[in-house]
Simulated assay, not measured.
Amino acid sequence: MKTAILIPARYASSRYPGKPLASLRQADGTAKTLIQMTWEAAQRVPGTHAIHVCTDDERIRAAAEDFGASVLMTSSEARNGTERCAEALDQIDADLVVNLQGDAPLTPPWFIEALIERMAQDPGAQVATPVLRCDRQTYEMFTEDRRNGRVGGTTAVFDRDLRGLYFSKEVIPYIDPGKLPDPIPVFHHVGVYAYRPAALRNYITWPEGVLEQREGLEQLRFLENGAPVACVEVDARGRVFWELNNPADVARIEAVLGAA
């Protein structure tokens, strides 16, 4: 199964313009851009046959090519990473497409390996995405963002067969603050996707749905059109996982990198 990792990256983010080119300090005191760190995370995934940055922005293209990345140019019409991956289909040869979004440099390789394995085991699965049970620290980061009016990470709820029921920027399910159970029944949705090419081609024929527009979450378009999304539970193995959603997240990620 030929697997291509695509890293969609746009400059014109509404919450964080220029985010892919944001610089993060490393443990050794040097700095790397977010897009370079994400590219390096993709390089650590075994068994893939191609890795490409997908963008419509010449600044991102130049920066990516400067550190040795392959770049596929896509249109400025792509409204999210899934649409950008769909646009890139005609430029690649792949049986499976992994969307590693350019704001998740802390994504461990085994998260992506688990997705690839899930898709290999079930030829009928069209879309898969990882979910990670929140530990207390991650849950507190979610609730801190909401208290401060920040749009942060995404949570997921799913059925007994791990089919996605809903994804939200709110913290779901609701938990009484005075009765926080252990383990915490909140799952962090990791913004990585594995798609069959047919699923991507279907996706771009569907209009944006109401829920997708309200939440700003691209994966809801699949659910709104009756296309199941397989959730794959992953284990952080003691590492902290967080995406760069807002400028405030730079310090959080640098702390994980040991640079703070």
Rank of each mutant, 00 (worst) to 15 (best):
L6A: 05
A9D: 04
R10M: 10
S14V: 14
A22I: 10
R25W: 01
L34H: 13
I35K: 13
T38K: 14
A41H: 10
A41C: 12
G47V: 11
H49S: 10
I51F: 03
V53Y: 05
I60W: 05
F67I: 13
M73S: 00
T74F: 00
G81D: 08
G81T: 09
E83W: 01
A88C: 00
Q91Y: 05
A94D: 00
L96I: 03
L96K: 00
E113K: 09
Q121S: 13
D122P: 02
Q137L: 10
T138G: 07
Y139K: 02
Y139E: 01
M141Q: 07
R146M: 02
R150Y: 13
T154N: 11
F158R: 11
D161Q: 15
S168R: 03
E170G: 14
V171E: 05
I175N: 11
D176S: 08
P181A: 14
P181L: 13
D182M: 09
D182P: 02
D182L: 08
I184V: 13
V190Q: 06
Y193Q: 06
R196C: 01
P197M: 02
P197R: 00
A198P: 04
N202L: 11
I204R: 04
Q213Y: 13
A227S: 12
V229P: 08
R239M: 04
W242V: 05
N246A: 15
N246E: 14
P247N: 06
A248R: 07
A248K: 04
A248E: 11
A251W: 11
I253Y: 11
